[in-house]
Amino acid sequence: MHGIVGWGSYVPRFRIKVEDIAGQWGADAAAFKRGLLLQEKTVPGLDEDTITISVAAAKYAIARAGIDPREIGCCYIGSESHPYAVKPSGTVVIDAIGAGPECHVADFEFACKAGTEAMFVAYSHVKSGVMRYALGIGADTSQGAPGDALEYTASAGGTAYIMGGENVAAEIVDTYSFTSDTPDFWRREGEFYPRHAGRFTGEPAYFHHVLGATRGMLEKSGLEPADFRFAVFHMPNGKFPLKAGKEAGFRQEQLEQGWVVNLMGNTYSGSSPTGLAACLDVAEPGDRILVTSFGSGAGSDSFVIRCTDRIKEIQKKAPATRDQLADRRIYLDYGKYVAYRGKIRMNQL
């Protein structure tokens, strides 16, 4: 049996409310909240980035796994906001968590899907027996252009998964991927903010791939929606994952626990991995969880996960995702927010 031996989410403490963004642009906050099903989003601190978020999440995952970090054979970080253009985020992360130097390191990119890619490859390494433990992380500090619809959702956070073959808390039963050339969202080298093709991002991109992967996963595994306690779909806003879940045959109760977007925003590569973590935090032995990510460009990874008896032993060994969403929130106004996100040009020092 191979799968998740430890997981950890990290949620920054800073928040901005939809009202404060809408108020700045003279937009109708109530309409945005209704349209996006979102009330606030996380904002990274001035000293936080994909590297620090990955370190915090990985430390929680190690605490749950109860392993020596030197036994981690690889560190893959999926993100759209790696701090360096040239120098992998993972080089800093492995030295911070004590997993180096005998460690295979790579940064992954695939819009919002990069996190599940990292998990996918990490899982394959332990399943093949190449390494004892493997670390896959999805983390982002995403940006939307001022006034753009993405500004209401693009947020920060991340989740780390340690895969292994001993003391498995949640077995990865099966995986499935679904990918095609779909130009829904992109950013060319040198551009600061990404571009999106408006309505094109919905049906042909998100729903086509999320439903394609989910239906493929169900067919491949021979399972039905009713066989799962929880289902998690990538959360670019509040509406899309609920709509996709219902179209795939899942009920509202199966979707709620992993639906963290209303309080967190879209954490891009961290989105569906963090939704999964919120489910693992409360899951019971035997519970099945379906997770389907989505990355523009476009593609989806789907996983069937089944919790073991071990899960109850490690849930409380690190902070739960939903506790971090609820506790010690620090609200920023729009002025502070743009300064935190480096959206305004200050005087050069």
């Binding site: 601190g45 590297i51 370190v55 915090a56 911070a96």
Partner: peptide, 12 residues
């Protein structure tokens, strides 16, 4: 004085 703290990893 006396505030309980934890050490965390941040960009300095």
């Amino acid at each position: 004085i006396g505030t309980e703290v934890e050490l965390i990893f941040r960009r300095l």
